[in-house]
Computed example of a mutant assay.
Amino acid sequence: MQYSDLTDFLSTGAAALAKGPIAMVFAEDPVELDSTLRHHLDAGFRAVLVFAPENFTLAADVVDEVHRVGFDRARGDLLTDHVNRVIAAAPGQWLYYCYNAEYLFYPFCETRTVGEMLSFHAEERRDAMLSYVIDLYAGDLGRYRDAVSIEDAYLDRTGYYALARPDPANNNYPKERQLDFFGGLRWRYEEHIPPPRRKIDRIALFRAKEGLTLREDHTFSDEEYNTYACPWHNNLTSAIVSFRTAKALKLNPGSTFDIETFKWHNSTPFEWHSRQLLDLGLMEPGQWF
């Protein structure tokens, strides 16, 4: 199922948006694109859209399982525009978005589908879920020069923190139930990261509705979507483990020569299991057991 661009998909393939949850994967490069698609297909998404240039080749076991939509990176970062167009075309459906070499984890994801998790979340009258983007990096940069390795992946076990999110429309008083989260490589190498890109929070799972729009800073026009919990108790949160920052830092000429290794005393091997992320406090099960 291949479409020349998003306009073509929305005119001829929009039936794929009839049942959610729906995943959108934006391919910045071919790195671990196939494993990203396999991971989200295995999670139970009813449809997976992959936005990728024509010259990116997909593996035989995933090419017929996804909806491939032409995506021209030369025109700049079109993610916000494309997500908003899908929102407008799929009101009422749960949507998710990420980049290649990023993998969604949620509590008990090894035994429960993303649809089951979102059904519980919706019963708690929640239409969005906070995700933390947790940086992964290869332990041996001499062997893995782009800092990406599924078999040799590490993450930071400490160093995460949150700050109040000021409201410019209310004399910069903190917004209710909203925080800016920081940590990982964006914190340890912040001199190489522009300030607007240092946050690690992303509302990656959300229910589309009429008039809703995603903003450039990964927040939504409806402020309730940007909250980490409801007023009554803590809610589920998820994690997106991501090689994206490590890859950028090692491929960027301005930072690559300053980094011989990403490992430090608080590095630990990633076990590719939700229990590790729960134990480290990098996602929250809320009332779901």
Rank of each mutant, 00 (worst) to 15 (best):
97 Y>N: 10
206 F>M: 12
156 D>Y: 06
50 V>H: 10
166 P>A: 04
62 V>Q: 08
82 H>I: 00
55 N>W: 12
182 F>R: 03
39 H>Q: 12
153 A>L: 03
240 I>S: 07
134 I>K: 02
160 Y>R: 08
53 P>Q: 05
109 C>T: 12
155 L>S: 06
152 D>T: 10
63 V>A: 10
51 F>Y: 08
174 P>Y: 05
283 M>R: 02
38 R>I: 14
192 H>V: 06
66 V>Y: 07
232 W>Y: 13
135 D>P: 01
12 T>Q: 07
81 D>F: 01
238 S>L: 09
245 T>C: 08
11 S>A: 11
4 S>D: 04
80 T>F: 08
12 T>D: 06
65 E>K: 15
257 F>R: 15
53 P>T: 08
162 A>V: 01
249 L>V: 04
68 R>N: 06
194 P>T: 15
288 W>G: 00
93 Q>L: 07
189 Y>P: 12
128 A>D: 13
18 A>S: 15
143 R>W: 04
98 C>P: 05
276 Q>T: 14
134 I>T: 03
4 S>M: 05
147 A>D: 03
211 G>C: 13
51 F>R: 03
118 L>Q: 09
66 V>T: 09
244 R>Q: 04
61 D>Y: 11
116 E>W: 06
60 A>W: 13
76 G>I: 04
274 S>R: 07
17 L>M: 05
31 V>C: 08
180 D>H: 11
260 E>G: 14
284 E>F: 09
75 R>M: 10
109 C>W: 09
215 R>S: 07
239 A>K: 06
193 I>N: 11
240 I>D: 10
131 S>R: 06
75 R>G: 12
216 E>P: 12
135 D>K: 02
230 C>V: 08
225 Y>D: 01
257 F>T: 15
86 V>L: 07
288 W>C: 05
108 F>N: 10
32 E>S: 15
196 P>F: 10
68 R>V: 02
273 H>F: 11
34 D>P: 15
184 G>K: 01
68 R>H: 02
88 A>N: 03
212 L>S: 09
206 F>V: 11
176 E>L: 14
81 D>N: 07
205 L>Q: 12
133 V>C: 10
278 L>T: 13
240 I>H: 09
279 D>Q: 13
58 L>E: 08
9 F>T: 00
147 A>T: 03
213 T>V: 11
77 D>Y: 11
264 W>F: 14
74 A>G: 15
166 P>S: 01
88 A>T: 03
266 N>S: 08
124 E>M: 10
144 Y>P: 01
42 D>F: 12
151 E>V: 09
157 R>W: 03
248 A>C: 11
119 S>D: 09
225 Y>E: 02
31 V>F: 09
53 P>M: 03
170 N>M: 07
254 G>C: 13
277 L>P: 07
36 T>W: 11
17 L>T: 01
145 R>Y: 01
16 A>W: 05
222 D>H: 15
15 A>D: 13
7 T>Q: 10
